[in-house]
Design a protein around this nucleic acid. Sequence first.
DNA 1: AATCTTTCAATTGTCAGACATTTAAAAACA
DNA 2: TGTTTTTAAATGTCTGACAATTGAAAGATT
Lengths: 241, 241
Amino acid sequence: MAGTKNTADLSVEIATAIREAIVSGKLIVDERLPSEAELASEFGVSRPTVREALKRLAAQNLIRTKRGATGGAFVNRLSFEEARGDLITTSTLLLSMNDVDFDTACEARFTLERACAPLSAQRRTPDHLATMRAEITRQGQAGLSDESFCASDVAFHRALVDGAGNPVLSWQLAAAVEAIEPLMNMITYSQRDRDQIIALHTRIADAIEGQNGADSDQALADLAEYTRSLARAAMERRKAR
Amino acid sequence: MAGTKNTADLSVEIATAIREAIVSGKLIVDERLPSEAELASEFGVSRPTVREALKRLAAQNLIRTKRGATGGAFVNRLSFEEARGDLITTSTLLLSMNDVDFDTACEARFTLERACAPLSAQRRTPDHLATMRAEITRQGQAGLSDESFCASDVAFHRALVDGAGNPVLSWQLAAAVEAIEPLMNMITYSQRDRDQIIALHTRIADAIEGQNGADSDQALADLAEYTRSLARAAMERRKAR
DNA sequence: AATCTTTCAATTGTCAGACATTTAAAAACA
DNA sequence: TGTTTTTAAATGTCTGACAATTGAAAGATT
C-alpha cells in the first residue's frame, strides 16, 4: 500500500513543506509566516516541534525571526553575502572530510579563476585595480605573518574575480578561493617564495589593467603551477621529517 | 563594558560552538556528541534549547541523529552528493530572489563550464562519452516534453563536467548547471531550436571524444551564444504580448 | 553449548503548560 | 499635542512527562 516513506520526523516534514512553499514561490520574500502557535495547530503538532522545524529553516537562511508584537518568522531574502559564508564552510568541510588532496582542490580553484580572468580584464573598474595593487603592496611588507600573507592573497584574488562584474561568478569563486586557504596556510612561505608570488601577482594585475585577457590567463596558469610546486615541496619536507 | 555581542539566542550560540568544534577538527567524523541531556547540563540550558541547536546543525548536514540505546548525534561525513542538493537549492533561490537576469546566470554557467571542457577532453572515460551520446539521442526523440528536454540537457552537461575527473569541479558546476534549469524551462523549444542544440551537443561530444579541447571550448561558446539568443527571443515575445 | 526470545535501559522524538523577554501599538496622562 | 504607561502579541526558554526506537543484556529453550 505504502509508497512514500512517511516515517520522517515531524519537524523534518514541516520544514520540508515550508521550504517547498518558499522555493516554489508560494511564500514570497518578506512575507510573514503564521505564528508558531498557528503553525502548530495547522500541522497538528506541538509548538516545540514547529520551533525545531523553523530552526532548520533559519539555519539555511530561508527565514528570519523577530520577537515582539509585530514579530514572527519571515521569508528571508537570501543574499549573496549571506550565502557566501555557508558555502565557504561547506567547501572547507568537503575538502577536509573527503581527503581531497591539494592538487585537486588547487586545480579546481585555478581552473575556475582562470575562466574569470578574461572577463575581469574587460570589465574591471579602477576600484578593483586599486584593491589588487594595495594587496600586492601589503604582501611585500616585512614581518608579515604567513597567515596575513595568505589573507592578503585571498583578498587579491577576490578583487580579481569581482572585476568580472558577475555576482554569480563572484559568489562561486569566493568559495573556491577561500576554501583552500586552510590548505595554503599549511605552507611556509620563504622570502623567496613571497617575492615570486608577488611578481606573479604584479604580472596578473598588469595584464588586467592592460585589459589583456591572454596574459592574465597565462600568469594565472604560472601561479597555479608555482603554488602546486610549493605544496609538493612542503609535502616532501613533511614526509622526510 | 561589553565588546562581544552576547545577545545571540542560546540555541544559536550552542550551534555555533558545536559547529566550530566540527570545523576545527575538535570533533571528528562519526564521533558521537554527548546526549541531549548531557549537552543541556554542559551548556546550562534546557533540553529543548539544545535540541533547537542540534536541528540547526542537522539542517546543514553537519550531524545526523539516531534514536535508541546506541543512538545520539554523530558528526556527519559531509559528502559531495549531500552537499550538491543544498547548493542547488541555494543557487536557485539566489537567482530568483535577487532578480539575477538570465544573461548573468548564463554567463556564469558557461564561463565555468568552458573552463572544465579542456580537462574533460583530456580525461573523459568511455562512460562519460556514452552518457553524452545517450542524452543526445534522447534529445532527438519525438514527442519529448520541453521539461524532459531540459533535464536531458542537464544530464549531458553533467557528464561533460564529470569527465574532468575533479569532484570539486563537478560539485560546483552541478550547481551552476542545475540552478538555471528553472530559467531554461521558461523557454519554449521549437523543433528547429532542438535540432540546433543537438547539433551543438554533437560537436561538443565529438571534440571531447577527439580530445580536442579548443574545439570543445568553441562549441560551448557557440552554445552559450545560441542559448542567450533563444532567451532574448523568448523575452521579447513575452514583452510584446 | 548454541540459539532464540524477552526484558531492559538509554536515547531521541513529541507533547503540554508555564513563564520570561521583547516589541510596537494603544491607552492614559500631562 | 507630546510624553509616559499599559497592554497584547509574539518569540525565547524552562520543566516535566510520556512515546518510540534500538541495541544489548538477561533469560529461556532446544
